[in-house]
Design a protein around this nucleic acid. Structure first.
Lengths: 243, 243
DNA sequence: TACTTCGATTGACGGAAGTCAAAGTAAAGT
DNA sequence: ACTTTACTTTGACTTCCGTCAATCGAAGTA
C-alpha cells in the first residue's frame, strides 16, 4: 500500500515544456520568463506513481513542492499512527507545504499521490534567496498561502457548524461551477476517499448520500445527479435545526 | 452587548512608545528603525474597550490589524447568524487577518476584544507597496502567516481526531511552558469562553473537566491544578479507543 | 438580609455519527 | 466463467456530545 518515492532515481532537470506549465502556476504569476528559468534551474522534477507517498508527517521540510501534473492528497493523523484525516486535495498548478518550509519545522501532514504526478521541487535555500530578491514572487507566495489559509478556515467552520450531509453537499457543489439547474457529474475518487475528504467514515458517507436523496440527489456508482443545484445550495447553508 | 468601534473618534497617529512595541512584533522582526517609522507613519492606532467588535464576518478587509496591547478573539458563524465558533485567541504582538487582506476578499470571521485593546491599523495599499519594496517585511509576513497556518492545521487535526476532553487537556497544557511535574494555574477566561475555544458547549466543558479528574486534574473556580503534566500530555496523544 | 443576575454544574434525554459485523456488488486475475 | 479481492451498502448497537431544564453558587444591588 505504501510505495516510497525515490527522488534520486526519478528526479531530473527541467524540461522545456515545464516552463510553459510553470507560467500557469499561480505561485509564479507575474514573474518574468528569466525568473522562471532561474527558479527552474535550481529545481528538480520528479515523477511519482499513483499511491506513492511524497513525504510523511514529521519529516523535515527541505523543498517546496509544485504540482505540475496529477493530484495529491494531504493527510494527517495522530502521532501513533492509525486514524488519518484528509486535509486537502491538490490539483495541478498548486504549490504546497510552504508553511512548513518557511517555519523550518517538520511537516504536520503527509502527502500521497492520488494519480501519477509530476512534481517540481524547489530547494529551501534557493526559494528563500529568490523570495528576498523578487518581490513579485514573495507577493505571489503570500497570495497563495492566503488562499489556502482561507480554505482551511472554511474547513474548520464547516467541521464545527455543519452536519456530515451538509459537508457532503458542499463537496458535491464544489465539483461543478454551476449554481442552479440540474447536473449529472462523475465522482473524481472512490467513496472511501471522498468520505475522508468530507471528514466522515465510509458508512456515514453512504448514509449521507441516502439522506441527500431527500434534497434531489441521486447516486448510481460514480455518477451523481443533482436535480436542483440552487436547492442543494440552500440546504448547505441551513442552520442545524432544520434537517 | 455590541459596542461598535469608532475609528474616527478614537484613532490617532503613532505614539513614540509604539515604535518600541512594534520592534517586538514578529511581523516587523528584522526591519530597520526607518522602516518601522515609515509604516507607523501610514498607520493609525485605535483603542477599543473590552467587548467591542473590531470587524464582522463579511466586511471588506481594508487594513491589517496589529494587536499592540490586549487580547482579541476571532469568531465565525454560519451566515444566517446564531451559532458561532471561536477560531483563535490572539495576544499582543500578533497581527491578524492578513489572508483576507491579501486575497482582497471579505473577512471569514469576526473579531471581538476580550480585553481593552490598542490596535495598529495598516491600510491595505500602504502595506502592499511596502511589501513590494521591503523583502524583509514580506518574509516576516510569510513567516507570520505560515505560523498561523500551522496552528490552524493543528486545530483541524484536533477537531477531527481528538475527543472534547483531550482538546481541553491540550488547551490546559498550552497554558504552561512546563511539560512535567505538577502545576497550579489560573484560567485566563471564564469557562464559557474556554468552552468556545475548545469547541464544545459549556455543559460539555464541565463534564470534560470532571472527566479529567481521572487524569489528575483538579478544578476550583478559576484555579486548575495538574498533578502530572507528563501524564496529561500522554493522555492528549492517546488514540480514541483508550479512554 | 433578601433579591436578582450571571456563570457553572448536574441530570435526563435525544440525535448524529462511529463501530462492528454481515451482506451485497463490482472489478480484476486465473 | 469462476474465484478472489476490494469497494460499498445495510443493519444493529454504542458513544459522544448537544439540548433542555433545574439547581447551585458567587457577585452585586436594593
Amino acid at each position: 500500500m505504501e510505495i516510497s518515492t525515490t527522488p534520486s532515481g526519478e528526479a531530473r532537470r527541467i524540461h522545456g515544456d515545464d516552463l510553459q506549465i510553470m507560467a500557469r502556476v499561480p505561485l509564479f504569476a507575474g514573474l518574468t520568463p528569466e525568473a522562471l528559468v532561474d527558479i527552474a534551474g535550481q529545481s528538480q522534477v520528479s515523477r511519482v506513481p499513483r499511491g506513492a507517498t511524497l513525504f510523511r508527517q514529521g519529516d523535515a521540510a527541505k523543498v517546496l513542492h509544485v504540482l505540475l501534473e496529477g493530484q495529491v492528497a494531504l493527510m494527517a493523523g495522530v502521532e501513533g499512527g492509525g486514524e488519518q484525516t484528509m486535509l486537502e486535495i491538490l490539483d495541478s498548478g498548486e504549490s504546497f507545504i510552504a508553511a512548513a518550509l518557511l517555519t523550518g519545522k517538520p511537516y504536520l501532514m503527509s502527502a500521497m499521490a492520488l494519480a501519477p504526478c509530476r512534481l517540481m521541487e524547489i530547494p529551501r535555500d534557493a526559494l528563500l534567496t529568490r523570495l528576498r530578491a523578487n518581490p513579485d514572487l514573495a507577493l505571489a507566495m503570500l497570495a497563495s498561502l492566503s488562499r489556502h489559509f482561507r480554505l482551511l478556515i472554511q474547513e474548520v467552520k464547516d467541521l464545527k457548524l455543519k452536519s456530515a450531509s451538509q459537508r457532503l453537499a458542499l463537496y458535491l457543489m464544489g465539483l461543478t461551477q454551476r449554481r442552479r439547474g440540474s447536473v449529472t457529474l462523475r465522482l473524481p475518487h472512490n467513496k472511501g476517499l471522498i468520505a475522508a475528504r468530507v471528514g466522515v467514515r465510509p458508512e456515514t458517507l453512504s448514509r449521507a448520500f441516502a439522506h441527500l436523496k431527500g434534497q434531489g440527489v441521486g447516486v448510481d456508482g460514480q455518477m451523481v445527479t443533482i436535480a436542483d443545484l440552487a436547492r442543494l445550495g440552500r440546504y448547505c447553508h441551513e442552520g442545524r435545526e432544520i434537517v
